[in-house]
Structures are given as structure tokens and as C-alpha cells.
Design a protein around this nucleic acid. Sequence first.
DNA 1: CTGAAAGCGCTTACAG
DNA 2: CTGAAAGCGCTTACAG
Lengths: 336, 336
Amino acid sequence: MTTMVKVAELAGVSISTVSHVLNGTRPVNEDTRQRVLDAIKETGYRQDALARSLRRSKTDSIGLIVSDSGEPAFAEMVRGVEQAAAEQGWTLLLANSTEDPEREARAVQALLERRVDGLILARVAGSDPGLLTDFGGKGTPLVLLDRLAELPFDQVGVENEGPITEIVHHLVERGHERIMLVAGDTRVATLGERRDAFLRTAPAAGLVPEHQVVVAAEDTATLVAGIREALDGGKQAERPTALIACSTVIAAATLRTVKELGLRIPEDLAVAVFDGFEHPDLFEPSLTTIRQPAFGIGVKAGELLARRIADKGAEPAVVRMEPSVEYRSSTEHRIR
Amino acid sequence: MTTMVKVAELAGVSISTVSHVLNGTRPVNEDTRQRVLDAIKETGYRQDALARSLRRSKTDSIGLIVSDSGEPAFAEMVRGVEQAAAEQGWTLLLANSTEDPEREARAVQALLERRVDGLILARVAGSDPGLLTDFGGKGTPLVLLDRLAELPFDQVGVENEGPITEIVHHLVERGHERIMLVAGDTRVATLGERRDAFLRTAPAAGLVPEHQVVVAAEDTATLVAGIREALDGGKQAERPTALIACSTVIAAATLRTVKELGLRIPEDLAVAVFDGFEHPDLFEPSLTTIRQPAFGIGVKAGELLARRIADKGAEPAVVRMEPSVEYRSSTEHRIR
DNA sequence: CTGAAAGCGCTTACAG
DNA sequence: CTGAAAGCGCTTACAG
């Protein structure tokens, strides 16, 4: 491998000068500079970021951990963070935790060992609380993404109360009196918040308590069993006529169950989903969707991290971004 | 930050011993070992991967560059590579090129500067050929992913000829005599191969040349215009009765156009797609899909890279994996 | 079983 | 405008 030493020899200068030419850190005689540049080209020299980072105690890289970068909402957040990173001149190290606390811990460890300048983290359900002790204060800058918590860190996520309230009213206006919320694993902060919002907003919208069904479970099998019981068991008149699925993954499991039960959307059951699927304009049923500004959330996370890196003492900021509700035919049917 | 020096002082040993305890690289007296371990715990010491890598000339990390990790097929390949990386003890540095040659070049540069032990690359259309000069031979190990080329590197991708032939015959059997291939940007190797396979296979299946329509374009607007012209212009009797979309992105643009033209699937138009959408069982139209074994392709790429890293002199391997064709209602209609 | 020391490839005060 | 040298935090022959 070519190092600065070889370049310096070829150009007949010291490695100091090569370094300063490379980084533009001090004026260099134009002739000398040109000789160095020529030597770099001739040797195909490439700076060693490891050595540079070691010396500078700064890697110009940040870590990003999400549960699954292939999921539409996270994919979009990743794109947002990428844009912010490009603006800051950071290399982005992206890791997937696959919703597994152990893999999350390993990813954090690996990124910290690589001395990232900061970390953006969407924590998994059941995330090890001890994981965050190395962050904040004079530790590595950290921004919590998507899944917020009562913790003294910068955070960006979506506002959940407003849209849940809006959807519930939308459904009530169309005559629905029995509404089911498929919440999923409510240890995930976003899902817990949506559940809480539902339980607060439903009575205010006029639903009686027995007609608010919340299905929560830590695993899909139990969740599906819960959905089945709510939709299939009991008398038809007692069955929910509308449901809200709290994430894309949950929506997929829910729709599959609804299909198996032979229920039609929206005639038998109105459906609204959080986050939702791609290309909602191309496929049926076309689903009413609460869409978060995922790209913007990613960008914001990057910006907060940049601010935190520049000023470790800044007051932690908690940013909630407003989703938009896209109404489609899955909730248009009036039952009364 | 805690370094080995502090740990060594606390344990009353040399940094050599700390290092050997950490890495298990030589026997250490059990008492001593325990003192070191205690000191590590007490100080919260964490190894510095930069310094370690610099010294060992080995980072235990690999780079992966795809055009968009949010696209279903790439998302699945990423998961496959992640699994292989976990098995090898590699940290994965993932970058998106967003189908842009410049961003691709910057990503390659950044990863090389970080001294990744190897790189897996799905090249963009119009990729700079000079980009690959630093690879192969005694350079950084490289595996080409998805988009293969006549180059002396390890490569893994999908077999295109077989499934295209199968789909064309499937359509011909159902009475289709005019078939359109929406190929997209044929500079992308996979798309070029699918186009070539179509042009070879269609005549053999009995299609006359004038009834084989290929729509290719480097940008979406031109592509859509081409689709429009083929489906909308001319007499109805001359319009294709079936189409094959060569990727998920192309399929989305195509379906949107088909919808705008008011054509029904499958009655007016049979549709088959390469790669396809998620949850094909949940939405209508349910599309006949050529599904590549994307996870397996990712795993294989990781394995080939591991082999290459272990033996730089090995003969380059080119692996083609077989996709499966999932038949659904979008091509079931018989027109004759 | 253990330690002193060289060296990985850089950056950056310090000195001239 | 330029160079000699220290030092970032490790690993690893070498020596005992």
C-alpha cells in the first residue's frame, strides 16, 4: 500500500508537507504543491482514514441503528439521515437490529469501538437500558429516532396523539361504534403511545368502554390469535366494524387474518393503518393511511446530532413531527 | 477515554498482558487475568478498533453498496449479507448509491479509505469503469452483486434467461400474440440481460418480430411515454395483450400508466413482473411474479467475499441463482 | 508467564 | 514556506 512516506520521497518533501497539501491546513508553495499532487496521482495514494482518525480522535462517521432498513418507514428515515450525513461530510455506518436486543447491543458496541462521532438509534422493544450509559454528557453524542423515551437525549419521532384522534373521529362520523386497535408490541414506544392515545381519545369521541378493543401482544402469533378472537368469536353484532393497525408489519398480519376470515373491506370492516404500504394508489384495497414524514424525521435526526456534536452541553431537544392522514376507500363506507 | 494504559496500571501489569487477555493471544496466569478483567470492568474500558485495525492492517469490516437498501429485492440481499457478515465476525458498512455514479464513486472511496477488508458492490447504470481498478489481484477483494459483468471478479446474481423464457411461454399458451417487455434502463446489467433473453426467446415461442415490443429508456418519463405509446396509440387490435415489467420500480411506473389508460388487469392486459412487490397475497391485482432468491444471493455474496479474502489467488466464481415464478391471477386470463 | 519496545500511518505543535 | 519529531492506542515479535 502506498503511504505518505512514499509520496513524500517521490515529491522530495517531508510528510508534513504532504499532509498539509492533502488537507489544505497550511499554505504550500505552488510548485511544491504541484509536485506533491503529481506524486499522489502517480502512486495512486489514498489517505488512510484509520490512522487519520486515530490521530485526530474523530472519525467523521456516525452510526445509525434501525430494526429493519427494508421496512418502508425506516427506509425513508435512512434516506433522510443519509442526506444529512452527506451535508455534514459524514460516512454513515448503518446497522439493522432486526428487533433483537442482543443484536442491537452488539451493533452499538461495534459502532462505539469504531469510534463513531455520534449515533442515531431507533431502540428495539426490550432494549437493554444499560446500553445508553455510555452516551450523553461527555460520552458519545446520541439521538433517539422514532421510538422516544423519557430520557435526557435528543429525540425525533412522530406525533401520535393527533392522528389517532383524527382517525377515530373519522370512523365515528361514519357510524362506527365498535373500533379495534391492533397495537402490537406496546413496549415499542411508538406503539405504546398510539395505544394510549386511542384509550384517551375513544371515550371522548363517544365510544363506550366495552366497544374499544385493544389487541396487544409481543409476538405475531399471539397478536393474530387476538385479532381472530375479536373478529370471529361472539355474535356478529358485537364484532368491531372498524380497525386501526399501528404499523406496517402489524397491518400485514392483520390484513392476512381479515382475509382468512372472509371479511370484506370496507363493507364488513373499515381499516386504517399507521405507516402503511408502498404504492397505495396501485393496489386494492386502497387503505386509509397515517403517513409520517419519515424522510424529514431522518434529516432532523442528522441535524440534531450535528448540533449535539458541536455543543455537547446543549439542552436536549425533543422533536415531534406531524404525520398526514391519507384518506382512501377502506374507511369511506358509512354504516349508518 | 479509557485506554489500555489505564487498565494496565490499575491491574498492575503491562499493556502487553492487557492486550493478550483481551484477545486471548497467549496464556495468562489466572490471577493476573482476573485482575485485568476486573480493571476493564471498573474502568469501562472499550477496545479502540481504529488503533487495532491500524496495527493489524485488518478492520474485520466489509463494505456493501447497493442502489437503494429500501427496495424489496435489495433489502433482502442486505439481510443475506448481514447474516454472512455476522458469521464471519465482520461489521457491515452499508451505503446507498441511489443509482447515481458519483455517489457510488464517493461511497467506494470512503469505504476504501476506511480500509474495509472487502467490498460487495451492486453497480449503478453508467458506473465509472475506472472505479474497479483498485480491486482484484492484490488489491481489495471485491464481489459484484446482482448486476454482473464480463469482468474478472467474483459475482453473484440471478439467472434471467430461464424465467423470461418460462413467462413468455406461459403467456403464449394463454393465447397472447403481442407481448411487451418494459425493460427500463438496459445499461443496468440485469435489465439488459432480461431484454436479451426476451429477444432470443420470443421468436422461439412463436411470436412474430413486429409483435414483440421492447420499451427501454434511461429515465422514467421517457419510459412511461414509451409504454403509453405502445398501449394507447394505434388500433386496439395492434395493442399488446400482455406485458412483462423487468423490476419493481419499473412495474410501479407501468401499473400507474396502465391504470391511467383505464386498462383492466388481466382482462385487457396480462401482467408479469420481475422482483415484484411485498405482500402479493394481500392486494389486488395479484401479480404473477418472478421472485429471485435475494436472501440467498446476499449470503452467497458474503461467502464468496470470505473465500476471496482468504485466498486472493482463487479463480473468480460467477454464481447465478434460479428465481422462482409465482403464478397469480394477473396472467391467468386466456384470450383464446 | 510476563514486559519493554518498535511500529501501524497519520496530524500537528514547535522550531527555523 | 518547510521539516523533524512526538504521539494517537493498539499488536506482536523478541527477550528473559
